[in-house]
């Protein structure tokens, strides 16, 4: 019979529509404006509406999520910020659009390089969020941030990030990427223990 397919198709859309209201009625408040509700709407079990009311509601991002890079610093003995970066230049070399600019510090007396950056800049207009810098930094000094709300009115004065804008504490890093942080810490402790053992025997 002609028209059966159309009627059937309309049935599918109608079912979708009714289910949306049914799910809303069934779950009520639990469905909106709370983390469980958001997680439910993003899960494979979801029925009904799956969109999120941004900016009132925000999607949680998974640990691996990457946006812009930042530089990790540890607190120094006097509370100062000690950047982990040794200005080895690997991130600047691996960066595909070449948007990392590093000036290495040189000792004014000896003229030898000092392992800390004098200047470190990332042109975030050009950064393609690829994460290669974080992936290949041998000192866990540059990591990918989760903060994606960086809209602004003027890119010319704000969008080349310098050390001030790039530096984030190791604590912050631990908060956004707990698993990566824990496994790196474990590796570091093991390395140090091995070094100490070697020093002890040697």
């Amino acid at each position: 019979m002609s028209g059966k397919g159309i009627v059937h198709g309309l049935g599918v859309t109608l079912r979708h529509l009714l289910r949306t209201y049914w799910d809303d009625l069934k779950k009520g408040r639990r469905r909106y404006f709370n983390p469980e509700g958001i997680a439910y709407r993003q899960s494979p079990e979801v029925d009904g509406i799956f969109t999120v009311q941004y900016p009132e509601e925000k999607l949680p991002v998974p640990e691996e999520f990457r946006y812009l890079p930042f530089l990790v610093y540890d607190p120094g003995p006097a509370g100062e910020k000690v950047l982990r970066c040794t200005s080895c230049g690997i991130c600047a070399k691996v960066c595909p659009p070449q948007c990392i600019w590093i000036t290495r510090t040189t000792d004014p007396e000896t003229g030898k390089p000092v392992p800390t950056p004098a200047e470190f800049a990332i042109d975030i207009d050009i950064c393609m969020n690829c994460g290669l810098c974080a992936e290949y930094c041998p000192f866990d000094a540059i990591k990918m941030d989760h903060d994606y709300e960086i809209a602004g009115y003027d890119r010319m004065t704000t969008n080349i990030y310098t050390i001030e804008q790039l530096a984030r504490s190791a604590d912050y890093y631990r908060k956004i990427r707990p698993n990566a942080f824990a496994s790196e810490e474990k590796d570091r402790l093991e390395r140090e223990a091995a070094k100490a053992a070697r020093a002890g025997t040697g």
Binding site: G89, Q98, W101, I160
Partner: peptide, 15 residues
């Protein structure tokens, strides 16, 4: 070819 020499060790950001 990349990597460009101007990026390190004396990189000063220019657009």
């Amino acid at each position: 070819a990349k990597p460009f020499k101007s990026r390190w060790p004396d990189g000063k950001a220019v657009r």
